[in-house]
């Protein structure tokens, strides 16, 4: 997470503008929150943990955030913004077909999560125990991703009869697969589930054989030996 977190500013008197100092303190608090959540449950993380990791005072914490939940949500929002940017960069190209876009989107998402284990845990595991606002953010992220999946109904031939709810269920199901990997401490191996997730999405919007072939080619591209 070093990209969002500049290291600590020199202590004591300096000529840095106050706004800059606050930003840096805020970033350190956000980063500390994410790191703390990677090590223990959100419920067990205390404001004391966060301020000591971030090396800011308790009163500074409360100048910036009203409570622990606000800090958690701000940390989530900050890094979700980066996640979305990365994924869109990987798959937002008008020359791509819908299945290609899905494949590159899955690959970029899993790569990001594997590289950011603290964020991965926060957004896919801790969002369920951090109160209703966190849950609403999680569900809205799922809905957002589902709109890309649901585009398959109109972008692929003869798939208007696929129910609209499938996209939401499939994205929710993919999140369950990802959550199981994170909970089993295989976060860094997440890219390996990519081909399975690709098949599980494509199969609804194209012929089964075509979905299998795409998934197998993806696995080969990642350097996996196919069993068949």
């Amino acid at each position: 997470m070093n990209e969002i977190t500049p290291s600590r500013l020199p202590s004591g008197r300096h000529n840095l503008p106050r706004e800059f100092v606050v930003t840096s303190q805020r970033d350190r608090l956000l980063d500390s929150m994410a790191q703390a959540c990677a090590e223990k449950r959100y419920a067990e993380v205390s404001v004391a943990d966060i301020v000591s990791r971030a090396r800011v005072s308790r009163s500074t914490f409360y100048e910036i955030f009203p409570d622990k939940e606000a800090c958690f949500l701000a940390a989530y929002d900050a890094i979700l913004g980066r996640f979305v940017t990365e994924v869109i960069k990987a798959c937002d190209d008008p020359n791509l077909t819908w299945p290609e876009m899905i494949e590159l989107g899955i690959e970029a998402s899993l790569k990001f999560l594997a590289a950011e284990p603290a964020f991965a845990r926060m957004c896919i595991v801790d969002m369920f125990s951090a109160g209703p606002a966190a849950l609403e953010r999680y569900l809205s992220a799922v809905r957002m991703i589902a709109t890309f999946v649901d585009a398959g109904r109109t972008m692929m031939p003869d798939r208007k009869d696929v129910p609209e709810s499938i996209a939401n269920m499939v994205v929710g199901g993919a999140a369950v697969v990802i959550r199981a990997e994170i909970v089993d401490e295989r976060t860094e191996l997440l890219p390996e589930v990519g081909p399975d997730l690709l098949y599980s999405i494509l199969v609804f919007y194209m012929e089964k054989e075509d979905a299998l072939e795409r998934s197998e080619r993806y696995a080969e591209r990642l350097g996996f030996v196919t069993t068949s």
Binding site: G172, G173, A175, V176, V177, V193, L197, S200, T227
Partner: peptide
């Protein structure tokens, strides 16, 4: 035919998808 070609995680995606929808409605 060729059951081994169907990826391992398919069952988890299906059960996860059903439970995600149940979660949304129940919550």
């Amino acid at each position: 035919d060729e059951p081994d070609r169907i990826p391992t995680q398919v069952a988890r995606v299906i059960v996860g998808g059903v439970s995600a929808l149940m979660f949304n409605e129940a919550s």
